[in-house]
Nucleic acid binder design. Structure first.
Lengths: 246, 246
DNA sequence: CGTTCGTTTGAAGTTAATCAAGACGAGTGG
DNA sequence: CCACTCGTCTTGATTAACTTCAAACGAACG
């Protein structure tokens, strides 16, 4: 696993500090974290961990996108999680990776040595409380995703994925999602298929169909613009009354 | 909502005390919990909460089975969680139900008034730590389920569900799952379909197929016996090397 | 200029959904 | 005891959705 060694960044200057697992930590706790942390980076396409690997660290995503996925005996794979900046990877109390973790883009992670981190979690409640919040949010996202996998049509799945990416993009820059929106797809067609429980051909066909009907426009294969976000939302099959569980 | 009023049970005598959210609580914390708790029971088929309902309590399942489910505009529904004895319902910090919660069998819950419970969580780390563990386990289960929903065939889905129920049943009574096993299905065909992202007709057909081929035997519609658990496992599509993530 | 990777598109094949009867079992009431 | 009903489940025929297999396109790269 070739990696680039990174210079140390002060927690105080960290871009995702207020959203990560360390969000509620004060100066003395941050000092402890500083001591057990180190940065690692991974190239696009590189595997960060295989299921069953022993991991001697847990980590926070600093930049880039990574995926969690599971595979059946015969190679069918399903993505089960998406790691975005500020997301947490690894499980305190478990030494072994439960999923394949893969860098989709170039990724930088802030890693904490497992033992000291677990010790810190026991001694300071802030971290466990924050991690609980983040885990509950992930569980909600996983359940939304289960509805998509179990009950949505291919077209609805694609529309839902586009809406999710558009919404996340908007929350980082502009404000409320509405009207015209533009963004880049951070995933290949195959990765989209693994996310949605489809084949890559079906993904391609449905994207083409949405384009043909004017729900979206494409510039190149990856840049999407949505002329009318509400129109896209209609295609997702979700409740219209905007009842996202926060 | 008609309910039966229940007599108070001491935490010390509680059958699921060592597995629930209060598992790590000591005497003084249990005393605080005693003060904010009350029991409620629900009949089979009764709705415990609708999505969007304001809930002034969180709760631990004492006995029975309940389901969490989500519904699309046009009525397609997907089960997203199963509440078994000792499982926790509700989210600290959220006033509103995110899912429809339905009693499948008769259900008894140990409810905690929301405000005092949240206060207790802030003041004592044991509860948050235990809830974090339980939530991480649920997240693992949800991701296993996503693999099932996204990538398994109807036959594999049915086999997987039967294996899950058989395994849970064994863990409550006997030891390691193997050889001959028997259990009752706690779900109707329709509930199984909502769990697996199938129609009830497909569920019925695949159950019949597994019976026809001798993988399972049926006594009545609900009582299943599995002559050879390993044979059933082969039908699930999962890795054979028994790598369940704990 | 040829190769590779990601993608699109077409034709054929398969799975599971849908539509439609009917069977079974457990009450209920005459 | 029997006829009736209701909910649940099974089975069959047909259809729709998605996958599979196959070919080819185009941009990026050496």
């Amino acid at each position: 696993m070739q990696e680039i060694e990174l210079t140390h960044v002060d927690c105080a200057d960290c871009p995702i500090r207020h959203r990560a697992v360390c969000a509620r930590c004060e100066a003395p706790e941050l000092d402890q974290l500083e001591e057990m942390k180190y940065y690692r980076s991974f190239e696009a396409g590189q595997t960060i961990a295989w299921t069953g690997d022993k991991l001697d660290f847990v980590a926070t995503m600093v930049s880039g996108i990574a995926t969690l996925s599971q595979t059946l005996e015969d190679g069918r794979t399903q993505m089960v999680g998406l790691l975005l900046p500020s997301d947490f990877m690894g499980r305190p109390g478990r030494e072994v990776a439960s999923y394949d973790v893969t860098a989709t883009t170039e990724v930088v992670m802030c890693c904490f040595r497992r033992r000291p981190f677990e010790e810190l979690m026991r001694s300071t409640p802030h971290i466990a409380q924050r991690l609980l919040e983040m885990t509950l949010d992930e569980l909600d996202a996983a359940r939304e995703w289960m509805l998509l996998l179990g009950r949505k049509t291919a077209r609805e799945k694609i529309a839902s994925l586009l809406a999710i990416i558009a919404r996340r993009d908007a929350s980082l820059t502009r404000g409320v999602p509405s009207g015209r929106m533009e963004f880049d797809l951070p995933l290949t067609r195959e990765a989209m298929a693994d996310y949605l429980g489809l084949t890559l051909e079906t993904v391609s066909r449905q994207v083409s169909a949405l384009k043909r009907e004017g729900v979206i426009q494409l510039a190149g294969k990856r840049h999407v613009s949505v002329p009318d976000f509400d129109r896209l939302m209609l295609e997702t099959g979700d409740d219209t009354d905007g009842g996202m569980p926060v």
